[in-house]
Amino acid sequence: MSSSPALRTPAARRVCAALAAAALALTAGACGGTTKDSAKEDDGARTSGAKADPNAATKKGLTVAFLPKQVNNPYFTVADKGGEKALKELGSTYKETGPNSATDTSGQVGYVNTLTQQQVDAMAVSAQDPGALCTALKQAMKNGAKVVTYDSDTKPACRHVFVSQASAEALGRSQVQLLGEQIGYKGDIAILSAAQTAANQNTWIGYMKDELKKPKYKNMKLVKTAYGNDDAQQSFQQTQGLLQEHPKLAGIISPTTVGIKAAAQYLSGSKYKGKVTLTGLGTPNDMRQYVKNGTVEGFELWDPAKLGALAAHTAVALSSGQITGRKGEQFEAGDLGTFTIGDDGVVDLGKPTVFDKKNIDQYRF
């Protein structure tokens, strides 16, 4: 979430269609092209008329490249190692490449172009921006590469399958639900996000805002959304700024692993420790000390290693012709089980896990 635990998912499309005005909570890219006609065009572009053969043999010797939003980001390191392990077991080759900054969109485009020139069999990409990679990814598909997005999507026409951490709606609403329980459904709250263009963040925030409209949250008020750009120092400073601007803040939601860790670091050494509640998406290894010292009561996340592994299995299944990205197709993903492709070529990993003092030592990632 980067993950930086950023793009249009079927859930984002549904919230745009169902809520109309609430769609303004999402970025323009997150809600772009939501008509039935454009959905059909997207499906056609993505599947290119190919037919799946679920009984086809799994190809070996493939080269699958992982292109995260940011290399050396702890979250993506875990996710991509999960992909590497899965590819080794499948008899294919793993490689990783990508920008050093989570906001270097033009750089990410350049890496896609390079991978296309290198004629990799497939690429797993976590998109920094909803539409910026589309031209490059479409060229990659035209050249025969299978394109999987994971963690953060692009437009459906620009990839074959999106491997989602969980449904966007479940992730957005559950973070508000968790914070509400922790603060007694009362007080001003803020959101510390990644980049303003991070589509997964924006989609989740859209659902957070919609969840807050429910009667039980009538005494909770979202006063600000800040952006730390998935940079530890910026996120730390944004947390400090939020509390200077809103000293009576009751809670903060940070739906990004970099952001929540930086916010916890600031809170743990400040007068706000134990007074301002922090939750969001983080890794157990990053957040363990802050849960144990009382800075954080509980937070949530999926297992990023499993997300990377599912992206790898999906890429190989596509390359083997077992799936094309059409709704209803199924494929096996080793120990992860059997998965079914949903609307707009999306596969959900599963429900997030809440980590607290009772269970955090059971997880090591």
Results as ranks from 00 to 15, higher is better:
331 F>T: 08
111 Y>R: 10
171 L>D: 02
298 G>I: 04
337 G>N: 12
85 K>Y: 10
299 F>H: 05
189 I>N: 04
146 K>D: 02
274 G>N: 03
263 A>T: 12
88 K>H: 14
290 Y>L: 11
348 D>V: 04
137 L>N: 05
242 L>K: 11
278 L>W: 07
154 T>R: 08
213 K>P: 00
256 T>S: 09
92 S>G: 08
290 Y>P: 02
319 S>R: 10
248 K>I: 00
161 V>R: 03
164 S>G: 15
339 F>P: 06
331 F>H: 13
352 P>Y: 09
99 P>H: 05
307 L>K: 03
341 I>K: 00
185 Y>R: 07
60 K>M: 06
158 C>H: 04
229 N>V: 09
260 I>Y: 06
36 K>H: 06
270 S>Q: 00
170 A>Y: 06
83 G>D: 09
9 T>R: 01
14 R>K: 14
342 G>F: 04
83 G>K: 08
49 G>E: 06
290 Y>N: 03
48 S>Y: 02
324 T>E: 09
97 T>I: 15
168 A>T: 15
174 S>Q: 14
2 S>W: 01
138 K>P: 07
252 I>C: 09
214 K>A: 13
288 R>N: 13
246 H>Q: 09
43 D>L: 04
197 T>C: 02
133 L>D: 02
246 H>I: 06
54 P>T: 08
30 A>L: 09
131 G>E: 12
228 G>E: 08
246 H>N: 12
76 F>I: 07
175 Q>F: 04
307 L>M: 12
102 A>T: 00
91 G>N: 11
216 K>E: 14
61 G>I: 11
347 V>W: 01
175 Q>A: 01
48 S>C: 01
198 A>E: 07
306 K>E: 07
13 R>H: 06
158 C>Q: 04
208 M>P: 01
317 A>D: 13
340 T>S: 01
3 S>P: 13
153 D>T: 03
201 Q>G: 12
212 L>Q: 06
103 T>A: 12
34 T>D: 09
